[in-house]
Design a protein around this nucleic acid. Structure first.
Length: 421
RNA sequence: GUGGGUGUAGCUCAGUUGGUUAGAGCGGAAGAUUGUGGAUCUUCAGGCCGCGGGUUCGAGCCCCGUCACUCACCCCA
């Protein structure tokens, strides 16, 4: 008991019936995203630390205190990926994208952040994400968001809100930051300690503060969308127009800034109320990421969804668990001769597509049938000395208790017919 | 990193103002006459009561520490 080895904090073993839920998410993603021209990309789970530092930004919390970084034997600094986008960008840049061309990929898998775990927040968590890279057009942003919303629809997730904002171009950002600082600076004393720090470190993030005392000031702050240059305003208006045209409902939230530095123009977030103290189900936006090589940036638009949070949202909506397929036939063997023939029979049935379990211990009939019942087998195939003499096998329907005797040679065929009927 | 809550059987949990060999339900195993499951009944297995110290004649219960889990803050998916 005291020797029990539990998984590390913030990690978990995932068993049935949860595994079926995970598979459902993955299959739904694999079924939907290709309809939008996306194909699956699998990148390594660890990368050179630089890939993330340059990609995500040195000033972010993720890079400053949440990365699992270690040295390999050659002394290189490596990091378990804390998010998917940076690695995907590395892979795409590595492969090359022709000027004016576009690449669309999606991915799914574990991410790692060294945070204190809580409901909906783990150290190893899983994301499904998508990125459309290579071109900068508002329609791409809108299409990407529409796909995300479509995905949530397919998963049956209702009652979510899509929040939308723009952070403008890289050129706009200093001006916006200045305007925000100019607004908040005179009221510094009224802000919470965190916000006083943010005022100098990262004004944008101040808008995200949830402390009640800060709300009046934040609500009165100049709206980012109004501080942007003409190019950014036009871009954002086009994104909105496209969403309207597709009938995607959204809400412009001037306070939405998101935590990663690489975002430009469009940022968005899907919120849901069934996630404990968290509310973000998915988030994303348009980005320009500096590659580790240093001399280039790659542009794209994408999002990431938290799979654990998707499952929490589905649970809060009482969406039924997809059940793992149960056992169809249990081979009951009485006596050593029958037992010796049980496994070969089970194997034949499996080759015919039947989910089959088979007695391996030579227990009593009662014990074997009890097991058959426990695994919810539809049929028990019973063979003992008298069946061996006659060359038959008894098939018992465990729902109706009706049983009939078949020639052994016909077992597979008749069983399949019975299962089909 | 900082707080709150909780640690008793495989699981979910009782356990009185501190009082003998530690309880239930579920789950598991075996049985209730021949080779027939589920329902019912009987029996059985399974516990360093998280760990260490302290108070006491006596601690699952009280005190201190520690570890773990969990929720929340920060931040994010």
């Amino acid at each position: 008991m005291s020797e029990k080895l539990e998984p590390l904090p913030g990690t978990a073993d995932i068993w049935e019936p949860e595994t079926s839920q995970w598979i459902f998410l993955e299959q739904t993603a694999r079924g939907l995203f290709p309809r939008y021209g996306y194909s699956e990309l699998r990148t390594p789970i660890f990368e050179r630390t630089d890939v993330f530092v340059r990609g995500i930004g040195t000033e972010t919390d993720v890079v400053q205190k949440e990365m699992y970084t270690f040295e390999d034997r050659g002394g290189r600094s490596l990091t378990l990926r804390p998010e998917g986008t940076a690695g995907v960008m590395r892979a795409i840049a590595n492969q090359g994208v022709a000027e004016g061309d576009e690449k669309r990929v999606f991915y799914m898998g574990p991410m790692f952040r060294g945070e204190r775990p809580a409901a909906g927040r783990r150290r190893q968590f899983h994301q499904i994400g998508a990125e459309a890279v290579g071109r900068a057009a508002p329609a791409m942003d809108a299409e990407c968001i529409a796909m995300l919303v479509h995905f949530l629809e397919e998963l049956g997730i209702r009652d979510s809100r899509l929040l939308l904002n723009s952070r403008g171009t890289a050129a706009d950002r200093p001006a916006v930051a200045e305007a925000l600082k100019a607004y908040f600076a005179p009221h510094k004393e009224a802000l919470c300690p965190d916000c006083q720090r943010r005022l100098d470190a990262n004004v944008w993030r101040l808008l995200d503060c949830k402390v009640e005392g800060c709300q009046p000031l934040i609500n009165g702050a100049p709206k980012i969308t109004e501080l942007l240059g003409d190019e950014s305003k036009t871009f954002f208006a086009e994104v909105c127009r496209n969403l309207d045209a597709m009938g995607v409902a959204y809400q412009v939230e001037p306070r939405l800034v998101r935590g990663l530095d690489y975002y430009v123009h469009t940022v968005f977030e899907i919120q849901h109320s069934g996630l404990g103290a968290q509310n973000a189900l998915a988030g994303g936006g348009r980005y320009a990421i500096a590659l580790a090589s240093g001399d280039r940036t790659v542009e794209g638009v994408g999002f990431a969804l938290g799979m654990e949070r998707l499952l929490m949202a589905r649970q809060s909506l009482n969406l039924a668990a997809a059940e793992a397929p149960g056992c169809q036939a249990y081979v009951v063997a009485l006596g050593p001769q029958a037992l010796a023939l049980a496994l070969p029979l089970a194997q034949e049935l499996r080759r015919c597509g039947v989910r089959t379990l088979c007695e391996t211990a030579g227990r009593s009939m009662k014990a074997q049938l009890r097991t058959a019942n426990k695994v919810h087998a539809k049929f028990a195939l019973i063979r003992g000395d008298s069946e061996l003499e006659k060359g038959t096998i008894v098939c018992k329907n465990l729902d109706t208790s009706v049983q009939e005797e078949w020639p052994v040679a016909e077992t597979a065929a008749r069983l399949r017919a019975a299962l089909a009927g």
